Simulated assay, not measured.
Amino acid sequence: MELRVLNYFVAIAQEGNMTRAAKKLLISQPALSRQISDLEQELGVSLFNRQKHHLSLTPAGQYLLSQATEILALTAKTKSNLTASAFIGGDLTIAAGESLGMQRIMNIISQIITEYPAVKLHLLSGDYSYAECKLNNGTADFAIIIGDIPVNNYASLTLPEKDTWGILMTTDDPLAQKTEISPQDLIGRSILNSQQSDNLQIFQNWLGNYQDCVNFIGTYNLNFNGTLLVKNHTALMVTLDNLLNIEPGAKLTFKKLAPKMYQTIKVVWKREVNLSPVAELFLKRLKASIFKN
């Protein structure tokens, strides 16, 4: 498979139409159609369901699209970093979830971008499994991992910051009068759990014997969307203290758990991989900021 042909394939998948894709790529439609037919013959699969005025992806096409997107992104990133190898420039890509520790990361990156305008930053947001996937396939230089997740396969740094788990609720909720929330306080209540907490069974372990006494209505991975359910009095939400930006008048309040539960924050990267100059600079400054504390 040639990169040029993969780029053709992605363009057709995005447009859903051979004619529009050909115009976008500045190539004749017959030539483009022939390239895709050759690709299908090479792979031994059909990539598109062909209708009169529309092309849709087959399951094989959907898989190739996800892989081709990653391959083309990694190729562009590699080319950018090699082109900028004589000076500090190129792309710095960080995959991360929401966390207080990101402020330290952003402070360092802000300094680098100010000093080296040729640096381009790419922030990829998602939970720990998403960040780890981006790191493993090479489309991210660093991943920010929140929680006590094994990182033995990677090089890592632990940030000084820690996030604290708690419950978000409306100010008129009976529990809003308490200073902390204990497991027995949640008996009979509906709970919206963090996707990461649910995957790692963090909150369920904290509940202990009371786990079956609460109603888990689902999970979320974007804090804002979960907050809307809390505002509607649909559920209480398990979240981390430093992810909240409660606006004045929102009538929401956050209460920490008792016993308390904290989440460590780690910056991880692949072992025995030659980092780009900008990634090396970022890592150097991150270490300096941590060891200075």
Rank of each mutant, 00 (worst) to 15 (best):
M1R: 10
L3N: 13
R4E: 15
R4Q: 15
V10T: 13
I12Y: 09
Q14W: 03
Q14A: 14
G16C: 13
N17F: 05
N17Y: 07
A22R: 06
K24N: 13
L25E: 08
L25H: 08
L25C: 13
L25R: 12
I27N: 05
L32E: 09
S33F: 03
R34I: 14
D38N: 15
Q41V: 07
E42W: 01
G44T: 10
V45A: 07
S46Q: 14
F48Q: 08
N49F: 12
K52H: 10
H54Q: 15
L57M: 14
L57K: 06
P59C: 09
P59F: 07
G61T: 11
Q62P: 00
Q67W: 10
T75P: 00
T75S: 13
N81H: 05
N81L: 08
L82H: 11
L82E: 15
T83L: 08
A84E: 14
G90M: 07
T93Q: 04
T93D: 01
I94L: 13
I94T: 02
A95D: 03
G97L: 00
E98A: 00
G101M: 07
N107L: 09
N107K: 11
N107Q: 13
S110M: 04
I113W: 00
Y116F: 15
Y116Q: 11
Y116A: 03
A118Y: 04
A118Q: 13
K120V: 11
L124I: 11
S125M: 02
D127K: 00
S129G: 02
C133W: 05
C133H: 10
C133L: 08
L135H: 06
N136D: 14
N136S: 09
A140I: 09
I144S: 04
I145L: 03
I146N: 00
V151M: 02
V151F: 00
Y154V: 13
T158G: 03
L159H: 04
P160H: 07
D163I: 12
T164I: 14
W165D: 14
L168C: 04
D172L: 02
P174D: 04
P174M: 05
L175E: 10
S182I: 15
S182F: 08
P183R: 07
D185S: 09
R189D: 01
S190K: 15
I191E: 05
I191P: 03
L192Q: 06
S197L: 04
S197E: 02
S197V: 03
N199V: 05
I202M: 07
Q204M: 11
W206L: 12
W206S: 13
L207W: 10
G208W: 08
N209A: 14
C213K: 15
V214W: 06
V214L: 06
F216C: 11
I217K: 04
Y220N: 01
N221H: 12
F224T: 01
N225P: 00
L228H: 08
L229A: 10
V230R: 00
V230L: 01
K231R: 14
H233M: 06
H233C: 06
H233A: 12
T234L: 08
A235D: 07
V238H: 10
L240M: 14
D241L: 12
N245V: 00
E247D: 10
L252M: 06
T253C: 15
L257S: 12
A258G: 06
P259Q: 11
K260F: 04
M261R: 05
V267M: 03
E272G: 05
E272Y: 09
E280C: 12
L283H: 02
R285T: 09
A288R: 09
A288L: 11
F291M: 10
K292E: 15
